[in-house]
């Protein structure tokens, strides 16, 4: 599997994702500067990692969504390519309108750096083949603007097309206001594109892939991805 990690000015989680992919594949993934205009030939997976691209100026991800590399990523997604946007990467994908909705300031206005629990809402995608539907796993979160928002029609569409990837839940797997720290609509933590190949999520599964990190809850996501995309 050949993956490309896109780096914008202010991206800071590219190494975290590289470690997670290296552990899963045994190969170091390539990184790609945002001013490139083409993806490396044979790319199977594009990752937009977390960080604060362009200092979060104007809106999180707004400037990055218009970077020179973005038309190539849009075309890659349109052709059925797999794109994973984590945290700021999710914000970039919504700003680029590759994924629907928007990420607003956390409802309580505070930057949240803590663990959360995610429930797998859709099994069997390239990202969730090693999880069961309804399975709960732990993931760290670190963001100030993770409050997922879309109009009711869009939210209904996402539910109807099984495009809600993960929801914030209690450790027991129940949705609750107390378990939805950033105030996201319908506790949504991650969403898919219509073909379930583009995934955006706010929490960081890549930061829980080694016992030394405090757990391996995020490892199945990368293991499944590698398996799904290994040609």
């Amino acid at each position: 599997m050949k993956s490309a990690i896109v780096v914008f000015p202010g991206t800071n989680r590219e190494r975290d994702v590289a470690i997670a992919l290296h552990r899963a594949t045994g190969k170091r993934p390539g990184t790609l500067w945002h001013r490139e205009t083409e993806l490396p030939a044979g790319t199977d997976l594009v990752i937009l990692p977390g960080g604060f691209s362009h200092g979060d100026y104007l809106r999180c991800g707004a400037m990055a969504a218009h970077s020179p590399i973005m038309p190539a990523i849009r075309a890659f997604a349109d052709q059925g390519g797999h794109v994973l946007g984590i945290c700021n990467g999710f914000q970039v994908l919504t700003e680029a309108q590759i994924l629907p909705g928007a990420l607003l300031r956390n409802a309580a206005l505070r930057f949240l750096s803590q663990d959360c629990h995610l429930r797998v809402e859709r099994a069997g995608t390239a990202y969730t083949r090693h999880y069961q539907k309804g399975q709960v796993f732990r993931a760290p979160m670190a963001h100030g603007d993770g409050n997922y928002n879309a109009d009711q029609a869009t939210l209904d569409l996402l539910e109807g097309e099984d495009r809600v990837a993960f929801r914030y839940v209690t450790p027991e797997g129940e949705t609750a206001t107390s378990a939805n720290p950033n105030g996201s609509a319908r506790s949504i933590a991650g969403v898919y594109s219509a073909n379930h190949r583009v995934l955006g999520l706010m929490p960081h599964p890549e930061d829980l892939v080694d016992p030394l990190m405090g757990g391996t809850d995020g490892a199945p996501l990368f293991a499944g991805l590698v398996e799904a995309l290994a040609a």
Binding site: L58, R59, A62, H66, E95, P100, G101, A102, N149
Partner: peptide, 9 residues
């Protein structure tokens, strides 16, 4: 429309 506002929100 293109950059200054995100017309979703």
């Amino acid at each position: 429309r293109k950059l200054l506002a995100n017309t979703v929100i």
